[in-house]
């Protein structure tokens, strides 16, 4: 039963990604060309509500369902890991025109070439796992 909930959340997320055009290569390209406010508006307005909501959760110590802790643990501090990893991700995001969430959405939309991108990202994840101990974190 719980899994159905996650499935429904996923369907909802998929529809939002597709309908907002955040899953479109054109919108990603346009964003990095600063050609439109659209993508910045999506991320910005999500953050506006996200930041307010998380602050309320923290200040009122609101618990998740079943009285579990909210998954809001602070992330480990570091610079190289986030900066270098982030730059590598950004290069791929702009080259493929898709980040992980939209990749799944585009598969459902019938763009089967995106499966090659997903294959590449699985390979990238795998190689990261292999060389992880040799990278600065």
């Amino acid at each position: 039963m719980k899994y159905i909930t996650y499935l429904v959340v996923g369907v909802f997320f998929g529809i939002i990604m597709y309908k907002s055009e955040a899953a479109s290569w054109f919108r990603i390209y346009e964003m990095f060309e600063f050609g439109s406010f659209h993508m910045y508006g999506i991320i910005g307005s999500a953050l506006f509500f996200g930041i307010i909501g998380v602050q309320i959760i923290k200040r009122k110590n609101i618990k998740a369902f079943g009285n579990q802790e909210m998954q809001l643990k602070p992330k480990k501090q570091s610079v190289p890991r986030y900066l270098i990893g982030g730059i590598v991700f950004g290069l791929g995001w702009a080259l493929a025109g898709a980040c992980p969430g939209p990749m799944y959405v585009l598969t459902g939309a019938g763009f089967y070439s995106i499966l090659v991108v997903i294959g590449g990202s699985l390979l990238g994840t795998f190689v990261y796992g292999l060389v992880r101990s040799k990278l600065p974190h």
């Binding site: 991320i43 991700f89 990202s121 994840t125």
Partner: peptide, 27 residues
């Protein structure tokens, strides 16, 4: 393939992607 590879490698190296960092983490 290369675009996908960079996304997968970079996301794991950075510990998250657009959803994990730009939305969850920044919130």
């Amino acid at each position: 393939i290369i675009g996908g590879f960079l996304v997968g490698f970079g996301a794991r190296y950075a510990g998250g992607c657009t959803s994990g960092h730009a939305i969850s983490g920044l919130s």
